[in-house]
């Protein structure tokens, strides 16, 4: 199955409330710090967004909404990514998609 890659989704999210996932280096400190042990967030999820893979992002709805927004990940992030702000922005997009 092929996936069409494009910048539209990331651009839409940046307009909504800021989305700085392009700074993510994929180091995985965030995943190691997550109290929920979510391995999807945020590395792969953010890549889905940056590549414009809408369907893959929609499929992770439960992952996005189960994030605690506790910022343990941000405390560990060497790139200073605003991970919880990005997650909140994604939630808003997912809620609107479902209207």
């Amino acid at each position: 199955m092929s996936t069409l890659i494009g910048p539209a989704l990331a651009a839409d999210l940046r307009r909504r409330g800021g989305f700085d996932a392009q700074a993510c280096m994929g180091c995985g400190y965030c995943t190691a710090a997550c109290p929920l042990g979510i391995d999807m967030l945020p590395r792969r999820l953010f890549r889905y967004v940056l590549f414009g893979m809408d369907a893959e992002v929609r499929a992770e709805l439960e992952t996005v909404f189960s994030c605690l927004l506790c910022r343990a990940c941000e405390q560990s992030c060497p790139a200073g990514v605003h991970i919880t702000d990005n997650v909140r922005t994604l939630r808003g997009w997912l809620l609107e998609e479902g209207r």
């Binding site: 439960e62 189960s66 605690l68 506790c70 343990a72």
Partner: peptide, 11 residues
């Protein structure tokens, strides 16, 4: 370490 509470409304 988070108490988990923020997930309670949904999960």
């Amino acid at each position: 370490w988070c108490c988990g509470g923020p997930a309670e409304a949904l999960y």
